[in-house]
Measured scan of single mutants.
Amino acid sequence: QVATSTVRILGMTCQSCVKSIEDRISNLKGIISMKVSLEQGSATVKYVPSVVCLQQVCHQIGDMGFEASIAE
């Protein structure tokens, strides 16, 4: 089973930030795809909930120095 959710990301300033986040999160087990939008300050994450949760994704992004939260 696959889920798609949006994560809000604060602190991104350039495409390099976007690429860094996409590269790191895409390597997590259970992540199918991730598309980060600098303009919208968010990311669309396609993932397998039984393998990885959005809290883990937000935590990983937080470790990179950005502020991440699950969009309502």
Rank of each mutant, 00 (worst) to 15 (best):
residue 46 K to V: 15
residue 63 D to L: 15
residue 63 D to H: 15
residue 18 V to N: 01
residue 40 Q to I: 08
residue 62 G to M: 14
residue 16 S to G: 09
residue 41 G to C: 10
residue 71 A to Q: 13
residue 36 V to D: 01
residue 30 G to H: 04
residue 48 V to D: 15
residue 8 R to C: 13
residue 72 E to Q: 10
residue 43 A to S: 04
residue 49 P to V: 07
residue 47 Y to A: 03
residue 48 V to T: 08
residue 22 E to M: 09
residue 44 T to Q: 14
residue 56 Q to G: 04
residue 29 K to P: 13
residue 3 A to H: 12
residue 45 V to Q: 01
residue 11 G to Q: 03
residue 30 G to N: 02
residue 1 Q to Y: 06
residue 17 C to Q: 15
residue 39 E to D: 12
residue 69 S to N: 07
residue 19 K to I: 12
residue 34 M to Q: 00
residue 28 L to W: 05
residue 25 I to T: 03
residue 30 G to T: 05
residue 71 A to G: 09
residue 37 S to T: 07
residue 48 V to R: 09
residue 61 I to T: 04
residue 58 C to S: 10
residue 30 G to K: 03
residue 33 S to H: 10
residue 47 Y to S: 00
residue 48 V to G: 02
residue 72 E to A: 10
residue 25 I to H: 01
residue 56 Q to D: 13
residue 58 C to Q: 12
residue 55 Q to G: 09
residue 49 P to M: 06
residue 35 K to F: 07
residue 11 G to A: 01
residue 27 N to L: 14
residue 26 S to Y: 07
residue 49 P to W: 07
residue 53 C to Y: 05
residue 31 I to N: 00
residue 23 D to E: 13
residue 59 H to C: 08
residue 50 S to A: 12
residue 1 Q to K: 12
residue 47 Y to T: 02
residue 16 S to D: 14
residue 14 C to V: 04
residue 29 K to A: 12
residue 44 T to I: 14
residue 18 V to S: 11
residue 30 G to P: 04
residue 43 A to F: 04
residue 35 K to S: 09
residue 23 D to M: 10
residue 31 I to L: 03
residue 69 S to I: 13
residue 46 K to H: 14
residue 42 S to L: 14
residue 66 F to L: 03
residue 72 E to H: 14
residue 4 T to L: 10
residue 27 N to Q: 14
residue 21 I to E: 02
residue 18 V to W: 05
residue 63 D to F: 11
residue 19 K to P: 01
residue 7 V to S: 00
residue 22 E to Y: 08
residue 58 C to I: 15
residue 71 A to L: 14
residue 50 S to M: 07
residue 42 S to Q: 11
residue 43 A to K: 01
residue 30 G to M: 09
residue 56 Q to M: 15
residue 9 I to Q: 00
residue 64 M to A: 05
residue 5 S to Q: 08
residue 37 S to K: 05
residue 20 S to E: 15
residue 32 I to F: 04
residue 19 K to W: 09
residue 70 I to V: 13
residue 25 I to E: 02
residue 59 H to T: 13
residue 1 Q to R: 06
residue 14 C to P: 01
residue 47 Y to R: 00
residue 50 S to I: 06
residue 4 T to E: 14
residue 45 V to C: 05
residue 2 V to F: 10
residue 60 Q to C: 05
residue 41 G to Y: 06
residue 52 V to C: 03
residue 46 K to Q: 15
residue 67 E to H: 12
residue 19 K to N: 10
residue 58 C to A: 11
residue 49 P to Y: 06
residue 36 V to P: 01
residue 31 I to V: 13
residue 2 V to I: 10
residue 35 K to V: 12
residue 44 T to A: 09
residue 38 L to N: 00
residue 33 S to N: 07
residue 9 I to W: 03
residue 45 V to G: 02
residue 46 K to F: 14
residue 36 V to F: 02
residue 70 I to T: 08
residue 43 A to H: 02
residue 21 I to N: 02
residue 17 C to H: 15
residue 33 S to Y: 09
residue 69 S to C: 10
residue 69 S to K: 09
residue 34 M to Y: 00
residue 39 E to L: 13
residue 48 V to F: 15
residue 12 M to E: 04
residue 55 Q to L: 11
residue 58 C to K: 13
residue 32 I to K: 03
residue 29 K to T: 10
residue 65 G to I: 05
residue 43 A to I: 07
residue 49 P to E: 07
residue 35 K to D: 07
residue 41 G to T: 05
residue 44 T to C: 11
residue 42 S to I: 13
residue 47 Y to H: 01
residue 15 Q to V: 11
residue 56 Q to Y: 15
residue 71 A to I: 14
residue 36 V to H: 00
residue 20 S to F: 07
residue 7 V to A: 00
residue 62 G to F: 12
residue 55 Q to Y: 13
residue 59 H to Y: 12
residue 48 V to Q: 13
residue 39 E to R: 08
residue 57 V to T: 01
residue 9 I to K: 00
residue 30 G to A: 04
residue 23 D to L: 12
residue 63 D to P: 03
residue 40 Q to K: 14
residue 6 T to Q: 09
residue 22 E to H: 07
residue 12 M to H: 01
residue 36 V to W: 00
residue 23 D to Y: 08
residue 7 V to F: 10
residue 54 L to W: 06
residue 19 K to C: 05
residue 63 D to M: 15
residue 43 A to P: 02
residue 36 V to A: 04
residue 1 Q to H: 13
residue 37 S to H: 12
residue 62 G to Q: 15
residue 33 S to G: 05
residue 47 Y to M: 02
residue 69 S to F: 13
residue 1 Q to L: 04
residue 13 T to S: 10
residue 64 M to S: 01
residue 42 S to R: 10
residue 30 G to R: 04
residue 62 G to Y: 13
residue 31 I to M: 03
residue 54 L to A: 03
residue 53 C to W: 08
residue 10 L to W: 14
